[in-house]
């Protein structure tokens, strides 16, 4: 094959590969979360949300603890599956300064029913759909659930997670912050 023909072939293959790469990135693969690790958790800590009895609970009241804020909903099966792990971890590590807080994109009666079902041992706040926007400020670009923000004792974001946390992973992250 003449040299010029090889050049044409390479040019076509190169263009297709490059265009394919750009296409894949643009069409499906933008990051699902924005990296906010290391940033100040002020936008989260400065918010007060009602509990299921309607009493405002400032999230900042737990500053100084290793704070795990979990955005969830009863209509989100992966959220429900993940929460017993949080209950167990709160029970095991609560006296070492670990505090879980659930922010539910849901209605108070549904939150209470599920809380009773799993014997929830940490605060469940009522976020409504406004809480989706709050989670977006913490890097949850798509507003999907479950989404968890782990804040260190100094009030900095130590970890964010879209999708369920695994037991070992959660313990490892918390262990580094205690």
């Amino acid at each position: 094959m003449p040299r010029t023909r090889w050049i044409v072939v390479f040019a076509v293959v190169g263009f297709v590969a490059l265009a394919g790469g750009f296409y894949a990135r643009q069409s499906a693969d933008e990051p699902s979360t924005r990296n906010v690790v290391g940033s100040d958790a002020g936008p989260l800590l400065g918010v007060a949300l009602p509990d299921t009895r309607g009493r405002d609970q400032p999230i900042g009241q737990w500053k100084g603890k290793v704070l795990i804020v979990n955005f969830w909903a009863t209509w989100c099966v992966p959220c429900r599956e993940e929460m017993p792990l949080f209950v167990k971890t709160q029970r095991d590590l609560g006296d070492q300064g670990v505090q879980f807080v659930g922010v539910a994109i849901d209605q108070p009666d549904k939150i209470d029913a599920f809380a009773a079902e799993i014997e929830l041992n940490y605060p469940a706040l009522v976020g409504g759909y406004g809480a989706i926007e709050l989670s977006k400020t913490m890097g949850n670009r798509l507003g999907a659930l479950p989404f968890t923000v782990i804040v260190d004792r100094a009030g900095k974001v130590a970890h964010t997670q879209l999708g369920p946390l695994k037991d070992g992973q959660l313990r490892s992250i918390i262990g580094q912050l205690l």
């Binding site: 390479f10 490059l18 790469g21």
Partner: peptide, 13 residues
């Protein structure tokens, strides 16, 4: 280099 750039874009995804 062009091909490498294309492959890099795919690998990131």
């Amino acid at each position: 280099a062009w091909l490498a750039a294309a492959l890099w874009a795919g690998a990131l995804d």
